[in-house]
């Protein structure tokens, strides 16, 4: 499903503040597998996720998703690829605080030109899945950290993606909520979605549903 081949990402190349965020990383995650990339802060985990998720382009190497090369796509097609195939959970959630829960979840659906009724149905199903039905009209800023995380999950799944990427998804959650989140991700995996998580939380990489754990250090990746 996801094939990363000798990918590097260098910021400010050739300048004094050059940063080698990802270096010669190769990785293969088959469909329906859950992989965790662990490593200390600044090791390049988030950069690797953004490259897989088509949020940024690598400096060299190639990334393929379902056999299709995505590392050289024009930005317009990167957006289309993300919109169709990728669901991303950001470390800081990146929710729009003043909008309601339902609006936040519906945002990825607006560019798909679906009817209002279809959007409502999809949002209903997602909010039911993350058990936020009763918080539907609440502004996101009035929710707890755990609830916001669940909104972020619902939004990431709004476009029914084949690939779910989660960046430090338990960073703001206690152990119980982290376990709950992993159960949700396990259910997504059972649906055949490919999941890549960046985390240094033992609750995540020690979870029984995780198929592979990889370690990232100074931009380089190694399998545990």
């Amino acid at each position: 499903m996801i094939r990363v081949m000798s990918v590097s990402k260098v910021y400010n190349k050739g300048e004094p503040n050059q940063v080698r965020a990802v270096w010669e990383v190769s990785l293969h995650v088959p469909q329906g597998e859950m992989a965790v990339v662990r490593g200390p802060s600044g090791s390049g985990k988030t950069t690797l996720l953004t490259l897989i998720g088509c949020f940024a382009r690598p400096s060299s190497g190639e990334i393929q998703v379902a056999g299709k090369p995505i590392s050289r796509l024009p930005e317009k097609f990167m957006t289309l690829h993300r919109r169709k195939h990728v669901g991303m959970m950001f470390q800081q959630f990146n929710l729009i605080q003043d909008l309601s829960v339902e609006k936040n979840v519906a945002i990825p659906l607006y560019p798909l030109q679906l009817s209002g009724r279809l959007i409502d149905e999809r949002v209903d199903a997602l909010l039911h899945m993350v058990r936020l039905d009763k918080r539907r009209a609440f502004p996101v800023k009035r929710l707890s950290g755990g609830e916001q995380q669940r909104v972020a999950i619902a939004r990431a799944l709004a476009n029914d993606p084949e690939i779910v990427l989660a960046d430090e998804p338990t960073a703001h959650l206690d152990t119980a909520l982290s376990q709950e989140l992993m159960t949700m991700l396990q259910a997504l995996k059972a649906e055949g979605r490919t999941i890549v998580i960046a985390s240094h939380d033992p609750v995540v990489y020690g979870h029984p549903s995780v198929d592979r754990v990889l370690t990232m250090k100074d931009g380089c990746l190694s399998e545990v």
Binding site: K13, R57, P58, S59, S60, S71, R72, P74, E75
Partner: peptide, 14 residues
């Protein structure tokens, strides 16, 4: 090329 300069050119082309 995957250099930053090429990316800038692509954006300018838009």
């Amino acid at each position: 090329s995957m250099e930053q300069g090429q990316l800038m050119l692509e954006r300018r082309s838009h």
